[in-house]
Amino acid sequence: MQRIPPQTGVGLRLRTGDRLVVVDPTGGQVSDLFCVAGDGGDDWLSNGRTIDYGNTMYFSTGDTLYSNLSRPMLTIEQDTCGKHDFLLTPCSQATFDLLYPEFGGAPHPSCFDNLCAALGPLGVEPGTISTTFNIFMNVWFEADGTMHIDPPISGAGDRFVVRAEMDLLVGVTACSAEKSNGGECKPIDVEVIPESPATE
């Protein structure tokens, strides 16, 4: 298990059939996930396609996450929390400039910058990074559409496990936005479990 320190991210390669395990070791911490095809295709993770095909905004065990080209990318195999977001983009410097006036425009770590740093060496351009699957993020809406972001309901040790349906380049963060994490940014643990080789 690899620990992602608070307000940082990592880039990973998954082969078809590999499992990615994301664990909230202390509880109450969001992890942004974004991926693109690792086989040279033009696929990137698409919340729009996934919402269309799933007919829901909320995804958990058994659901599939699709690419912009309608190819399955990830299947959720285990989810001990059950509350995630697939509507919001990763926090960026602009997020803090516009929505966090208390920081006074000062530089702030962000999931977008961390994904760029993690995926850049794998050949992923910043302009490719769009809406992330925000593991453990607690977003809900009132009847009039007003949005709320409450602290995650994940507890220490909650797990989210996905299986790669194609070769993938994946970025995972320990989210940098204090308000999304109950006021304190904490670490995230990740592990890649290779697909078991076929037995004769």
Rank of each mutant, 00 (worst) to 15 (best):
G11C: 13
D85C: 13
G40Y: 05
N47L: 03
L45K: 01
R3V: 14
I4F: 04
R49W: 07
S31I: 09
A106R: 15
R3E: 13
Y100A: 14
H108Q: 14
M57K: 09
G27H: 03
V10G: 08
D52R: 13
F86I: 06
R3F: 02
S46P: 02
T16R: 15
F59G: 06
P101S: 07
L69H: 14
G9A: 15
M57E: 06
G41A: 12
G41W: 01
L69D: 06
P107K: 04
P90D: 10
T61W: 00
L45G: 03
D97H: 12
V21T: 05
L88I: 12
T26E: 15
Q29G: 03
N68A: 12
S70F: 11
E77Q: 12
S46T: 01
L33G: 09
G27D: 03
S67Y: 07
C81A: 10
A106Q: 14
F59Q: 07
D85R: 01
G104D: 13
T95R: 09
N68M: 05
S46M: 03
A106T: 08
D32C: 11
G48H: 10
L87P: 00
T64V: 15
G11Q: 11
G11K: 10
T95G: 11
V10A: 15
S60M: 00
D39G: 14
F34G: 06
Y53S: 01
G28S: 04
W44S: 13
G105A: 07
F34K: 05
C81N: 15
